[in-house]
């Protein structure tokens, strides 16, 4: 292979897709904090460069440390609450697995209280539960973690506002372009229907955020199981060839 050819190949940038119809808008007036924080100007579309299609790949352990897949064993005793297993796949838009990628997890305790000094509503803290973890997908894109079901909690968006029970999930994916922070909700939670954050996602896509109870993931005599797959932005199959002066 000539040097020129190798340079051309290395310059082919396979872009990631832009957000799909399920993406929430930045401004969603029912979620009041967006009113002063959402940009008012439309984001500027730029072509993908090396900056957007690269990412820290396999460096998660070096950056964040080893996996913490069981949120119920981080303290002296067991946390209060319903023990759960959450498992699923991380996929791209072509349903191909995304292997060796980190999922960071944080959540409230069974009473709906976060271990955070700015969360001071009168629900009990649990000395045996922090509510933080991280897992890494295997070669088939699978992940699994153990936790307790978080409680709902009130917040100040409007009078008598309550967030549905949820688990926060953060993914880097393979590139700067695939960064995703989301929340997983539980089936049969009536609060989802009236939650302005969940409902910033238009229907039916909001339902992508609702996990499925699964008897196959449930562990007999031990924990209820939920399935939740995470789909990151994908890339189109065919790279488009860029024009070059020396071509």
């Amino acid at each position: 292979m000539s040097q020129v050819t190798s340079r051309l190949i290395s310059r082919v940038i396979l872009p990631y897709r832009r957000e799909d119809a399920g993406a929430p808008p930045s401004l969603h007036a029912d979620y009041r904090s967006t009113m002063l924080r959402a940009p008012r100007l439309a984001p500027l579309a730029i072509p993908a460069t090396l900056t957007e299609v690269t990412g820290p790949d396999h460096a998660w352990a070096r950056l964040m440390g080893p996996a913490m897949a069981d949120l119920t064993v981080q303290h002296r005793g067991e946390p209060q609450g319903q023990r759960i297993v959450v498992a699923g796949l991380v996929l791209d838009e072509q349903a191909r697995p995304v292997p060796d990628t980190v999922i960071e997890i944080w959540q409230a305790n069974a009473a709906g209280r976060y271990i955070h000094s700015r969360d001071d509503w009168p629900a009990p803290l649990d000395p045996n539960f922090t509510g933080v973890g991280r897992v890494i997908t295997d070669a088939e894109g699978r992940y699994r973690f153990v936790s307790i079901r978080p409680g709902a909690y009130p917040w100040g968006n409007h009078k008598n506002a309550w967030r549905p029970a949820h688990i926060h999930l953060s993914l880097l994916g393979p590139a700067f372009a695939t960064r995703l922070v989301t929340q997983m909700y539980f089936p049969d939670d009536p609060l989802i229907e009236i939650d302005p954050i969940a409902n910033a996602v238009p229907m039916p896509y909001r339902q992508r955020l609702v996990a499925r109870f699964d008897i196959g993931t449930t562990v007999p005599n031990w924990a209820l199981g939920y399935r939740f797959d995470i789909v990151l932005k994908g890339r189109d199959q065919t790279p488009f060839e860029e024009e070059h002066d020396d071509h």
Binding site: D20, W106, I115, R118, H168, V181, V201, R206, L232
Partner: peptide, 19 residues
Amino acid sequence: TLFGQTPSQTVGPFFHYGL
């Protein structure tokens, strides 16, 4: 029938002990 990008949600105010 719903397969597609997982929608984004806010990181919220309590990410400090998790991220």
